[in-house]
C-alpha cells in the first residue's frame, strides 16, 4: 500500500516536473538503483544464517518448485500474448 501511494505521488511529481531536462537521466539512475537493490537483497539473504541453513536443507526442492511455477506462468503468459497479438493483427 505504501509503495502504491509513493508511486501515485511520484507520478504526480513527474507530471509537474515534466519540463525539467535532468529527468532524462532517470533511466540510468533507476538501472543503478535496481542493481544496488539486488546487491542489498543478496547481502540480506546471504548474511541470514537461518535462511542459508534452510536453503541448504530445502534448496533443491525449493528451486524446482519455484522454477516450475515461474515456467508455468511464463508459458501461460506467452500463450496469452500469442492470442492477443494474433487478434490485433487480424
Amino acid at each position: 500500500m505504501r509503495i502504491l501511494l509513493l508511486l501515485a505521488i511520484s507520478i504526480g511529481a513527474g507530471v509537474l516536473l515534466k519540463n525539467v531536462r535532468h529527468l532524462r537521466y532517470l533511466h540510468h539512475t533507476s538501472t543503478w538503483t535496481v542493481w544496488l537493490l539486488l546487491l542489498a537483497f543478496g547481502f540480506t539473504l546471504g548474511s541470514n544464517e537461518a535462511i542459508v541453513r534452510d536453503f541448504l536443507h530445502f534448496g533443491l526442492t525449493a528451486f524446482a518448485v519455484a522454477f516450475a511455477g515461474v515456467a508455468g506462468s511464463v508459458l501461460a503468459a506467452w500463450g496469452v500474448r500469442m492470442v492477443i497479438d494474433k487478434k490485433r493483427t487480424k
Binding site: L6, S10, G12, G14, L17, K18, L26, S30
Partner: peptide, 15 residues
Amino acid sequence: LLYALVVQIGVELGA
C-alpha cells in the same frame, strides 16, 4: 532502495 526506485519510475511515468 525500493522506495528510491519507485519514485524514479513514478516520476518517469508522470513526465
